[in-house]
Design a protein around this nucleic acid. Structure first.
Lengths: 164, 164
DNA sequence: TCGTCGTGGTTGTCGCTTCAACTAAACCAG
DNA sequence: CTGGTTTAGTTGAAGCGACAACCACGACGA
C-alpha cells in the first residue's frame, strides 16, 4: 500500500522539483552570457583554483565536482582545447592524470567569480533570511546523507574556508 | 566590490548545488529502471493525467512542466511513438495542438506512480522532520519567487489538492 | 616472473536538450 | 480585405552527458 503525499508534503515536493529544474538554468545562463562557461566548467575550474598547485587528480576532481570520470574527461578535453586546463601525467602513478589550471584558466575563473557569486546572492541567498539559510543548510545536508552518504562532494567545504 | 560568501552561506550554497546536481539523477535512475521513463516524461504524463479529459494544450503543458515548447514537442513526439500520448488538433484554434494521454499512457503513469512516490519519500521527505518539510516549502517558495516570478510551474498546486 | 585482477582514464556512440529557423494561423490597423 | 505582427508549434543541426567498450598500468599471489 502506497503512502501518498499529504498537502504540505506535496507542496514542498513540487516546489523542490521546480527549484531543481529552474536553478541550473539560471546559473547556466548567467555564466554562459558573461563568461562563456557552463556551470560545470566553472565548477571544475573553481575546484582546481582552490587546490594546491592548482592541480588535482582526475578521479579526485571528478568526486569534487560530483561527475563521472567520463564526463570530466570530456570536459577537460574541451577546456584543454581552450587553453584553460592542462593534462599532466602523474609522476608516481603512470595510470593517473593530473589536471592543472593554466594561467589563462585562472584568469578566467577569477574574472567569472564575482558575477557568479552576485547571481547566487540575487537568486538564492538574498531571497532568504539568515535563519532560512541555516535551515536550508541543514535540510540539504540531511537529503545529501541519503543521496551521497560518503559526502564526497561536499567534504572539502565542511571545514572552515580560509578565503576565496 | 563583490560581497563574498560567508562560511554559513557558502555551506548552504555548496550543499544546495550538490543536492540539485544529485537529486535529478536519483529520480531518473529509479524511474528509468522501474518504468523506463525519464523524470520529465513521467512529469509530463502526470500533468496530463490530472488534467480534465487528460488533455492539455501544448503551451499549457509546457508551462506546467516548466519546459520550452521545443523540448516538449520532441518529448511528445517520442511519447506518441510509444503510444502514450496523442496529438489532437485543437478545435477552435487551428494553430494549437492538444496533447491527450492515451489509455496505455494512463496505465503507465498509474503503474509508475507508487514507486516514484516511494522513492521521493525515501530520498527526501523521510530525511526531514515535519518542521523541516514546511521550512523547505517556504525556502523553495522564496527562491522560486526569484526564479519564476509568475509561478507558472507551481500554480496548479498552490490550491489544496483533492487526491492523487 | 608470470598470470590475473583491480584501478585510472579515454574514446565512440547514442539519446536528449537547446537554439535558430521556419510554417501556419490569428489578430489588428487602416 | 490587405499587410504586418504576434502566437502556436514543429523541425534540423549542434553540443553535451551517459553508457559501455576499451587500453594501460599496478598489485598481488603462486
Amino acid at each position: 500500500m502506497t503512502r501518498w503525499l499529504g498537502d504540505r508534503e506535496l507542496q514542498a515536493w513540487v516546489r523542490l522539483i521546480a527549484m531543481t529544474e529552474l536553478l541550473p538554468g539560471a546559473l547556466e545562463q548567467q555564466l554562459k552570457r558573461d563568461s562563456d562557461l557552463s556551470h560545470f566548467e566553472y565548477y571544475v575550474m573553481a575546484m582546481l583554483s582552490e587546490a594546491p598547485e592548482r592541480t588535482l587528480r582526475m578521479t579526485t576532481l571528478a568526486a569534487r565536482a560530483n561527475a563521472t570520470l567520463s564526463r570530466l574527461s570530456h570536459v577537460v578535453t574541451r577546456l584543454e582545447g581552450r587553453g584553460f586546463v592542462e593534462r599532466v601525467p602523474c609522476p608516481g602513478d603512470k595510470r593517473a592524470t593530473n589536471a592543472v589550471l593554466t594561467e589563462a584558466g585562472w584568469a578566467t575563473v577569477v574574472a567569472a567569480a564575482p558575477g557568479h557569486v552576485e547571481n547566487v546572492r540575487e537568486t538564492v541567498l538574498d531571497a532568504l533570511t539568515d535563519e532560512q539559510v541555516d535551515q536550508l543548510s541543514a535540510i540539504a545536508g540531511a537529503i545529501l546523507t541519503r543521496l551521497d552518504p560518503d559526502g564526497v562532494m561536499t567534504a572539502p567545504y565542511e571545514r572552515a574556508r580560509v578565503e576565496e
